[in-house]
Amino acid sequence: MKRCKGCNGYSVDDKMVKIANKYKGVKGGIMGALHEVQDEYGYISEINQKYLSDKLGVPLSEIYGIITFYSRFSLMPKGKYNIQACMGTACYVKGAEAVIKAFKDNLNIDVGQVTEDGLFSLESVRCIGACGLAPAIVINEDVYGKVTPDMVPNIIDTYRKKEATK
């Protein structure tokens, strides 16, 4: 653990120290650093923002501006299983809206929200390029193609069961 000045005594873990050191002095390195923080923690916390600001010499306001500009970065943690429903044109034309609605109804959350148990979050995303499989959804690393609304309860169940057996 390392303490940083400007973090008001909060501390960050070793992974953060590593990421910050990697991008220190790299031209335009803040984007790369934010990518790594997002991938590592699933979101970019305020403490980590302050730490990066301090280490990379980028004002906190600017970092906040960057995070909120790009949809890939998030300020809030996502669900353990993040459901990304593709809303690209090909998926849209093949009925992606109905699929999203089925997820909303089954999970009782809206797009952009996390279920109470923290298990699922739902996002509608830009074209993932799996247009041959339209409509497509991605849950963490798994891609599901040609999804219909009646497949949705089963898909959700797969992950619920996975959790229950753990």
Binding site: G28, M31, G32, L34, H35, F69, Y70, S71, R72, F73, V125, R126
Partner: peptide, 8 residues
């Protein structure tokens, strides 16, 4: 390489 972050 520089990675985009989801902004059209």
């Amino acid at each position: 390489l520089r990675l985009g972050a989801g902004a059209f």
